[in-house]
Design a protein around this nucleic acid. Structure first.
Lengths: 157, 157
DNA sequence: TCTATTCGGACAAGAGTTATCCGAGTCAAG
DNA sequence: CTTGACTCGGATAACTCTTGTCCGAATAGA
């Protein structure tokens, strides 16, 4: 039960991109966060496929958010990187073995699957309630103003 | 983001064990569910380490639940098999790279980590609210009476 | 005492994730 | 218009974790 580590990077990237007015190349994002540039590129590709960011090629190219930060939920990013499939997958154990329940009697989902689905929904709902805008606001509140200004300068260079 | 498949088996085993008055060997549980006997043994070991079941060696030995089903939550089983560690682990990205925030300024947890922790708590809370007794009741409600009786006979043999 | 049966931990195989590279395409400058 | 350098994108290995299997130690009953 482990989420892809790329989710953390992707979320940090979204926060940074929201502050930058111009496209930011993947290499710069990698250097800023001190992570593998090649691997971060993969995460950004996934964000691109999901339609959360748009890439611009050539000189002075890079990545830009496609929507307002208030329109991007944390769940959007998590599902883009980690996939949208639920963590639990019911294999219909009750239909196997010597006492298998016939399929036609299994009109209602397995109770175990129902509990897991419910928990999964609660988890996703919790992530859907927070947007990148909320994260940006929170970062702005807890980070020294000087650091924020330094970041802005560093990105511009 | 995938939960161990053994969780499903372990929960089914708990339901079965609650109906059996006597110890049930791992081999019988494996045959009943038509799953790998060697691998199921591993899951039962984990349940044993967690103190949810007690094993009896020798002839007519097997596994028995240690508590009433109403005292065993689904979360107990999930954490026994899949581990209790949260799916998201913050690597403190903000303390890395050229604009690293000094550690002494990081008194509050990273906003991203806070969101993830909150979602994780919601998920666990949802699983903690359901007990094995609830599952047993639900199974009894949705399974044909004849199948339940057949299971009882099969376990006895 | 002996035997059959049980669990427990140590031992491989496979899948998924992590990490990396190089080529195709594109924009900007000269 | 040409050149050139810079960008992303997908295809390619290394690694970790999960899955799956085995045999030995211990036990209860005959």
């Amino acid at each position: 039960m482990k989420m892809s580590g790329g989710v953390e990077w992707a979320l940090h990237c979204c926060v940074v991109l929201s502050r930058a007015g111009a496209p930011v190349p993947a290499a710069k994002l990698a250097e800023l966060h001190d992570v593998s540039q090649s691997y971060l590129a993969k995460q950004l590709q996934l964000l691109s496929r999901a339609g959360l960011v748009r890439s611009t090629l050539g000189q002075s190219g890079g990545y830009v958010l496609t929507r307002a930060t208030s329109e991007i939920t944390v769940l959007d990013v998590v599902e883009a990187i980690d996939g949208a499939q639920p963590a639990f997958r019911c294999t219909e154990v009750r239909q196997r073995g010597p006492l298998a329940v016939p399929a036609e009697r299994c009109d209602t989902p397995c109770p175990i699957a129902r509990v897991m689905d419910s928990a999964d929904r609660a988890w996703r709902e919790s992530l859907r309630a927070i947007t990148v805008a909320d994260l940006v606001a929170d970062v702005g509140r807890t980070t020294p103003a000087e650091t924020l200004e330094a970041a802005r300068q560093w990105l511009r260079a």
